[in-house]
């Protein structure tokens, strides 16, 4: 359950930014989370429900943008969708590829008043 410590990091980032902007309340936290980020969406949601206890954050909704994973084959440069690390290139059957999308784990935006 590293999602709890991930959540603590998320809330620190949100709180820091919200306080800098003199926000009184955070309505929404928008995150980009890649399918290969190593974070489970449900666990992240669950952890968030149980950690946002401060007055500033307790009403904040978590919105997760799921970013599908894409790879570029190192052998033939073909770009393709992947769901895991061990899918071969559909064009040349090579396993060596770079993940070019899907490892995102970031706080994209917050909605505040």
């Amino acid at each position: 359950m590293h999602e709890f410590s991930i959540t603590m990091n998320v809330l620190n980032i949100v709180e820091e930014n919200a306080m800098e902007l003199n926000a009184e309340i955070v309505h929404e936290i928008e995150m980009d989370v890649g399918e290969l980020s190593g974070v489970d969406y449900d666990a992240l949601n669950f952890a968030m429900q149980h950690t946002k206890k401060s007055e500033l954050l307790e009403h904040a909704n978590l919105v997760i943008n799921r970013i599908p994973a894409k790879a570029r084959c190192k052998a033939c440069k073909h770009e393709f969708d992947i769901k895991d690390y061990y899918t071969a290139c559909p064009d040349c059957n090579h396993f060596d590829h770079d993940i070019i999308q899907g490892k995102e784990l970031r706080v994209k935006a917050i909605k505040i008043d």
């Binding site: 980032i13 309505h27 706080v107 935006a109 909605k111 505040i112 008043d113």
Partner: peptide, 15 residues
């Protein structure tokens, strides 16, 4: 729906 949207774009594991 209220609120100002502020772009943060900060990596969660950056610290």
């Amino acid at each position: 729906s209220h609120g100002n949207v502020i772009q943060i774009e900060q990596d969660v594991l950056s610290t």
